[in-house]
Design a binder for these strands. Structure first.
Length: 569
DNA sequence: GCCGTTTTCGGCCCGACTGTTTTCAGTCG
């Protein structure tokens, strides 16, 4: 069992207990454990077998025993008992904005409703408004959010899909007769959410590959299967489509499978203009070399290679034909991470641990940006603690060769527009990230003015996760993005591409708009543990999808150049 | 639930906002 799967059990356990009205601290302990387990890099199986579970901070005797139970039996008795008591659908209801455990419980008790469909029906029939604390307005909101959720229809975060695809493709690569495996579709194009995973493999005997995949521990069942394709349902709720082709057909298959449909249509009409066709047979003809790559496909169309991230029909075909495709940023261009949390606030690791990991990654610098004083729940730093932390950073810097830790802060942009830290202190901080963490439901005018006031503050270097969205969970706040971008452009304020897979904020479209307005971005992880420092790759993918080049991204600068840039801007 | 001891139980948890009320419970980060 994977660590993350064990973590899911504890998250669900916590949610179920919340519905039951269990004690706050117990629930928090389970939620904490879930987060800690998901962030562990060493397989839990190894930790368990060597008797070190209880040595993990936050994992005590009880939770360690439960982890052991899950690892040895594949299930947890307490979890299964709760599932018999509390309908699982109530967790979906609880995931709607404005509905927590109390309201979900009341909906179940008073209306007998325990699914989103049932709740939507009840809301439409006007049966929700009579409940305490509810009104016609709440009914409308409920209906709206449920429809929104339906539109998203089972899509999952890219990071989860990538995790699964990598495990499966590593497995398939090892199978006898398999020459090559790649992922196509939206995963290869690094779209922020994924409907299903499309894999292409080159092998001589498709059926034996399908049979082997069917026995993989993540695979629940074979949904359908023919000569060269099979569809699998996984325990993670993601469907996997696997196409197995002969070696010589691999590259064309990957090309068509990668899409997008819109990109392929655009290529088709480009070719039609030249009296040619984009059909698989003619593409196959140009790819005789079995281990060739897609460059040959594009060359045969008369175009330079177009990276998968650009294949969205956003002008890439025209740009390619005019030889003005961007020289896309790459992960290796990133020289540091400018938004990281440590155990000083709500992160899990010390500054030293973060620095060690950053150095392993080949970074030249990081900024330690813990939360500011108002964000109590995240242990936001009082002004004194902030000062203490900055002393620690400065003395650490004296010991470090060829690496720089910037003092920093992620300062809250307060509801009325001020910052949660006095200017005279911000002025002394190397790097200031300003972000919104409260009062999300302000109207667009208020929120826009609020953020612009931070943009205009001379001490603010970067605006963190500008729109505040949480993919598949929460829409961004009401905001006049155009105005914010213009204000940022005139103040030289940097905008963040937050790499956290649930944020990706700015997104590709907004980041491209920022570039067009002459803005610089910083690609940061906002990591709260070492593992999440690896998420930089997702931010870089957003930047690539936004056509960004190294010069657009400030954390591609060397430490010295970055300091100069921040000073001069 | 975990933690840290003063080793056997008390502390951990916070404030703003929202919507529906009219004084506050529930939600959220």
């Amino acid at each position: 069992m994977r660590n993350v799967e064990v973590a899911w059990v504890f998250q669900e356990l916590a949610d179920l207990l919340e519905l039951k009205g269990e004690e706050f601290f117990k629930i928090r302990a389970y939620k904490n454990a879930s987060r800690i387990l998901a962030g562990l890099e060493e397989p839990l199986e190894d930790i368990w077998k060597s008797g070190r579970l209880e040595k993990i901070p936050g994992i005590g005797r009880n939770i360690a025993a439960k982890v052991a139970e899950i690892l040895s039996t594949g299930r947890l008795k307490k979890h299964e008992e709760l599932l018999k008591e509390v309908p699982l659908g109530l967790l979906d209801i609880m995931s709607l904005p404005g509905i927590g455990p109390k309201k979900a419980g009341m909906i179940y008790e008073r209306l007998g409703v325990f699914s989103l469909d049932g709740l939507a029906r009840a809301a439409k029939e006007g049966r929700v408004r009579d409940l305490p604390g509810m009104s016609g307005k709440s009914e409308k909101e409920i209906i709206r959010y449920i429809e929104l959720k339906k539109d998203r229809g089972g899509r999952v975060l890219l990071a989860m899909a990538r995790d699964l695809f990598m495990e499966l493709s590593d497995y398939i690569k090892m199978l006898p007769g398999v020459v090559r495996v790649e992922v196509g579709g939206s995963v290869r194009r690094w779209q922020e959410t994924v409907g299903d995973i499309d894999l292409v493999a080159a092998a001589s005997d498709p059926q034996s590959v399908f049979d082997a995949v069917a026995t993989h521990p993540r695979v629940r069942e074979v949904v359908e299967k023919d000569q060269s394709r099979a569809r699998f349902q996984t325990y993670w709720g993601i469907t996997v489509d696997l196409e197995v082709v002969p070696e010589e057909a691999f590259v064309p298959a990957l090309f068509f499978c990668t899409g997008s449909h819109a990109h392929l249509r655009r290529l088709q009409s480009f070719l039609a203009g030249k009296g040619a066709n984009l059909d698989p047979a003619s593409i196959a003809n140009v790819c005789r070399e079995p281990l060739g790559d897609e460059r040959e496909v594009y060359a045969s169309i008369g175009l330079p290679y177009i990276p998968p991230e650009l294949r969205e029909d956003r002008g890439e075909v025209e740009a390619a034909s005019e030889h003005r495709l961007p020289d896309l940023l790459e992960l290796g261009d990133i020289k540091g991470d400018l938004h990281i949390h440590t155990s000083w606030s709500d992160g899990l690791c010390t500054i030293e641990q973060v620095v060690a990991r950053a150095r392993q990654k080949g970074y030249e610098y990081i900024a330690v940006t813990d939360h500011s004083q108002s964000l109590k729940i995240a242990k936001g730093l009082s002004l004194n603690r902030l000062k203490e932390q900055h002393h620690e950073v400065m003395s650490l810097n004296k010991k470090l060769d060829n690496f720089r830790v910037f003092t920093g802060i992620e300062v809250d942009i307060l509801p009325k527009g001020g910052l949660d830290c006095p200017d005279n202190i911000l002025k002394e901080v190397d790097l200031v990230v300003a972000s919104v963490h409260s009062a999300f439901r302000q109207d667009s005018e208020t929120m826009t003015a609020r953020i612009i006031s931070a943009v205009e503050n001379k001490n603010v270097d970067i605006i963190g996760h500008l729109t505040g969205r949480l993919i598949t969970r929460r829409e961004g706040y009401a905001l006049d993005l155009e105005r914010v971008l213009e204000a940022a452009a005139s103040c030289d304020t940097i905008l963040e591409i937050n790499s956290s897979p649930a944020r990706l904020d700015l997104n590709d479209v907004n980041a491209r708009m920022a570039k067009e307005k002459g803005l610089k971005v910083a690609i940061n992880t906002d990591a709260h543990d070492l593992k999440r420092m690896d998420e930089m790759v997702y931010g870089v993918a957003v930047a690539r999808r936004a056509w960004l080049e190294t010069e657009d991204v400030v954390n591609t600068l060397s430490a010295g150049a970055l300091v100069k840039y921040l000073k001069d801007k």
